[in-house]
Amino acid sequence: MAKTILLLSLVALTFSCLAFAFEPSPLQDFCVADTTSPARVNGLACKDPMMVQASDFSFSGLHIPGNTSNAVGFGAKAVNVVQVPGLNTLGISLVRLDYAPWGINPPHTHPRASEILTVIEGSLEVGFVTSNPENRLISKVLQKGDVFVFPVGLVHFQRNVGHGNAFAIAALSSQNPGVITIANAVFGSKAPIASDLLAKAFQVDKKIVEQIQWKF
């Protein structure tokens, strides 16, 4: 009986740990990030609470459009723990996303967060791909005021399909969600991934891979 109780306790503890696998719940009112601390923890060390100011919890400038003058016609302005130290341990962040006409937010993932996106202006085609082996595309065209959710870790994208500029606000379930842009990671890694390996993976000629790598 004692062994059964112990086993059930371990199972319950395991599921409790999994439930908080991404970011732990705060154990105090706040833990404002101390970026000057030499301590290395999973997150950032806490500033002395008596030294905390309102500026640790605020950010200005989200009304200013991001720069879309680039090859993909897209700009992002993040509001995470780097910009707002007070987000440390709170498990949330924001990002403003701006799109030139037919601009795209290329296929990418957030390794540490799910995302919920709201279209503020314009029309966006959005979608994500489910994991192997199905690799099913789930996609939709959103209009102003529409909302879409991207599950954690899945490859997703957005494209402006309207006639003018578009922008959206997205919230993410991490103070530091991270972003892995697929093309940059695969073709722009440092050092480069062997071109013959990529050619075999993508089933294309090695010269095509080398041309793409050169662009990155």
Rank of each mutant, 00 (worst) to 15 (best):
P101I: 06
L97M: 15
Q83E: 15
H108Y: 08
A113F: 00
V81D: 06
P101F: 01
A113Y: 00
E115V: 06
Y99M: 12
Q83V: 11
T109S: 11
S93G: 01
L117I: 15
V95T: 04
W102T: 15
P106Q: 14
I92V: 15
S114V: 07
L90A: 13
E115G: 01
G91R: 09
I116Q: 03
G91T: 13
N88I: 08
L90W: 12
N88E: 08
I116W: 03
H108I: 12
L97W: 07
L97Y: 08
Y99F: 15
R96Q: 05
I104C: 12
H110P: 03
G86N: 09
E115K: 00
Y99A: 10
T109Q: 04
I92E: 03
P111S: 09
G86M: 07
S93M: 01
A113E: 00
R96C: 03
N105C: 09
R96D: 04
A100D: 13
P107C: 02
L90S: 14
I92A: 11
L117R: 05
P107W: 01
V95D: 01
P107G: 01
T109M: 11
H108T: 06
T89F: 09
L117M: 15
I92R: 09
V82P: 04
E115Q: 01
P106M: 14
L87G: 10
T89L: 02
Y99D: 11
V95R: 00
L117G: 09
T109F: 05
T109I: 15
L97I: 13
S93W: 00
G91P: 14
Y99G: 10
L87E: 09
R112V: 01
L117E: 08
V84K: 06
E115L: 05
V95A: 09
T109D: 00
L94Q: 02
G103L: 00
N88W: 08
L97V: 11
P111R: 09
P85G: 11
I116P: 04
I92D: 01
I92N: 02
Q83I: 10
H110N: 03
P85E: 07
T118E: 10
L117Q: 07
T118C: 14
P106Y: 14
R96T: 05
S114E: 02
P85Y: 10
I92K: 04
G103D: 03
P85Q: 10
G91S: 14
L94V: 04
V81T: 13
L117C: 12
L94E: 02
W102Q: 15
D98T: 07
D98W: 07
T89W: 06
L97D: 08
V84N: 09
P111I: 05
A113G: 06
I104M: 15
E115A: 04
Q83R: 13
T109E: 04
T118Q: 09
I104S: 15
V95I: 14
V82E: 13
I92C: 12
V95S: 02
V81I: 15
G91E: 11
P106K: 14
L87W: 11
S114T: 05
L90T: 14
G91Q: 13
T109Y: 02
N105V: 05
G103V: 00
W102D: 15
S93C: 03
P107L: 02
P85C: 10
L117A: 13
G91Y: 10
H110A: 04
L97N: 05
P85K: 11
Q83M: 14
H110E: 00
L94C: 05
H110T: 02
L97T: 08
W102P: 05
